[in-house]
Design a protein around this nucleic acid. Structure first.
Lengths: 190, 190
DNA sequence: TGGTTGCTGTAACTAAGTTATAGGTTTATA
DNA sequence: TATAAACCTATAACTTAGTTACAGCAACCA
């Protein structure tokens, strides 16, 4: 029984794709795996996303939306330490998602101009937060913070750091401390 | 005319693979593209590497060898600033190679235990260099330096940083300065 | 010189992204 | 309400990629 397009077939497909991605990895992100889970044929991907590239771009954009929702509460109050912790928490909870956004998990994927601009907005939010926190050079400090946490998270996701979770926690806290130390003129200021 | 196995057919294949990877990207790294360039059939990949996974692992290992050769002159004299610059230079000269090693450019690839250990040796060398440079806690400081430069390089390779090359240069120098500032007890020491 | 070993190419198999086509369902219009 | 247009959907086929079966041939050894 096929009724006229479930109004949220697009959501169903995107959810299925995210489930496959998170549970079985980027290599298993095939149209047939996704559509089998979503309960339609591969044609659905073309109807709603124009193909696999469009689907991956939807994943990419959805990731930045979710990411921003996780960080904005901290940004709004200029809590850079909290934001840094939330950054890693989100990445560890959405490992494959993170690698689609920041790694090259889907080899032939490159975000469109529109998507890249959207992704850049997350950085603009960070710059504002760093400005609120009182940095001398918000752009440079924000980029430094961004690059540092990204480096820690990528190494952890790729399994290239220490293996014990507690040591990873400690290392990341130390990394945050050092990266933030360079931001305020006097680190002891409240 | 087919003579008995050219003694360096393995090298020929690896070179061809690196050429395809660097010029056409990870998505174009297909057995047929590689073997067409190397002048043999796809069977050669199975003879010398056991399949595509083995070939990618060879690329992975070759990358760390080349990487270490680029950094060791600086490590030996404890020149962390020079090593940091050489790190980025190597990554920018071998972008796709870097993404195979540190990104997830080949989605289903995971290095073997042996290969992961070999990759870890590069970090051990860095720890030694940081110790020579006089850090209080070489392990932690080395990991921080590692994560920071990796973060900067990954953002640059993924096109998620500023676009002007001179600004990327300046940003990276500033990142190095900040990351190194936390290493020596007194940054003004010669 | 004859046998063994190992490398090589051809061709076929399976899986994945994509597209053509036909059929059916909803919406709009007369 | 009847008809037409638009849209969605599934089936099936096409292309490409990783892999394997198989047969042939070159090098080495006794």
């Amino acid at each position: 029984m096929v009724t006229r397009s479930t109004p949220d077939m697009r959501h169903t497909l995107l959810d299925a794709a995210l489930h496959v991605l998170q549970h079985d990895g980027a290599a298993a992100l095939t149209l047939r795996n996704i559509t089998e889970r979503a309960g339609c044929s591969t044609t659905g991907i073309y109807t709603y996303f124009g193909g696999k590239h469009g689907l991956v771009e939807a994943i990419y954009l959805d990731g930045f939306e979710s990411f921003d929702r996780a960080l904005s509460p901290f940004y709004e109050v200029g809590d850079l330490l909290g934001a840094g912790r939330a950054y890693r928490t989100w990445a560890l909870s959405n490992q494959m998602h993170y690698l689609v956004m920041f790694g090259s998990a889907v080899p032939d994927f490159e975000p469109s101009e529109m998507a890249a601009v959207r992704a850049g907005r997350s950085f603009v939010d960070l710059v504002d937060a760093v400005r609120i926190a009182g940095a001398d050079d918000p752009e440079t400090s924000a980029y430094h913070l961004y690059a540092t946490v990204h480096g820690y998270v990528m190494l952890e996701l790729m399994g290239m750091g220490p293996v014990e979770p507690t040591q990873l926690d400690r290392r990341y806290e130390e990394g945050l401390r050092r990266a933030l130390a360079g931001i305020r003129p006097s680190p002891s200021r409240t």
